[in-house]
């Protein structure tokens, strides 16, 4: 399709405007974060003497090192397991077509639009009874369960489209189901698995509700939960709050910028299917 020059320009102008609006909050936070501590900053104003040391203060105050460790622990606890068991289930439901699989899948679909708020209260009492409250496991275990609807849905969609002949050929060679799964299907599913991994990483890292309900100690929470605690404690110190928030955001942003192509395609596909 040919587009006139004018059309192209208006289009670009709109996109640039949109991009600027998207960036505005970040820039505004940065400008506040660089003001001297103890002042009340005003809007967007580049400080005469940028206080980069505020970030050092925030790093100490927020206990960044501990936060990073905690978030990593939770992510490592949630994502590989979720991806693994969802891939297996997707394989079982989508490719092996287990008898009664539809019922299982139907059950999972119920959870696809379920707001976490609907189950957070019983999960709290469940975790308390298990003695896991205030440990990272209280976030890890329920998250795995809560991700299953989407994750299985996602992997099943992939496996449904894999031609049956592929397995038949491998069967002739005398492969067991496990060998079939592990040697033939998992390698083929790599793109789907990669996207799912990215999505689950993001969702885990940014999980807030479970973190604030199930764990009190900010250093045992997810990043979003820790950020919430940071705001709860320093919310009235605008300078420190902005510095700390930007700092807490940095790891996510770095990972995003490195893998941005994968992130965007994963998010696009993720929403298209979800």
């Amino acid at each position: 399709m040919r587009l006139s020059r004018r059309e192209r320009l208006t289009g670009r102008a709109f996109l640039v405007a949109l991009a600027l609006i998207t960036l505005l909050p970040f820039v505004s936070m940065l400008s506040a974060a660089l003001q001297p501590r103890g002042t009340v900053p005003t809007g967007l104003a580049w400080p005469a003497d940028p206080q980069w040391s505020n970030f050092v203060d925030a790093f100490t105050v927020a206990n960044m090192a501990a936060l990073l460790r905690s978030s990593l622990f939770i992510t490592v606890g949630v994502v590989p397991v979720s991806v693994a068991i969802a891939t297996m289930a997707g394989f079982g439901l989508g490719h092996l077509r287990v008898p009664g699989g539809r019922i299982a899948f139907g059950l999972l679909l119920i959870g696809l639009t379920l707001p976490f708020e609907a189950v957070v209260t019983p999960i709290y009492y469940q975790m308390r009874d298990l003695g896991l409250l205030n440990t990272r496991w209280a976030i890890v275990l329920p998250l795995i369960g809560l991700y299953m609807p989407f994750a299985v849905f996602w992997m099943r969609a992939h496996f449904t489209n894999v031609p049956q002949e592929l397995s038949d050929a491998a069967r002739v060679d005398g492969s067991t189901t496990w060998q079939l799964f592990w040697r033939v299907h998992v390698p083929l599913a790599r793109p789907a698995i990669a996207s799912l991994t990215i999505l689950l990483f993001l969702w885990t890292w940014n999980q807030f509700l479970l973190a604030i309900v199930l764990v009190d100690d900010a250093t045992e929470r997810t990043m979003a939960g820790a950020l919430g605690a940071f705001q709860g404690q320093w919310g009235t110190d605008q300078v420190l709050l902005c510095a700390g928030s930007l700092l807490i955001l940095t790891p996510t942003l770095v990972v995003f910028l490195i893998f941005q192509r994968h992130f965007i395609s994963a998010l696009l596909q993720g929403s298209l299917k979800g």
Binding site: R102, I103, G106, L107, L109, I110
Partner: peptide, 8 residues
């Protein structure tokens, strides 16, 4: 989804 909802 339609059938399985009925089932579930």
């Amino acid at each position: 989804s339609r059938r399985s909802v009925v089932l579930t």
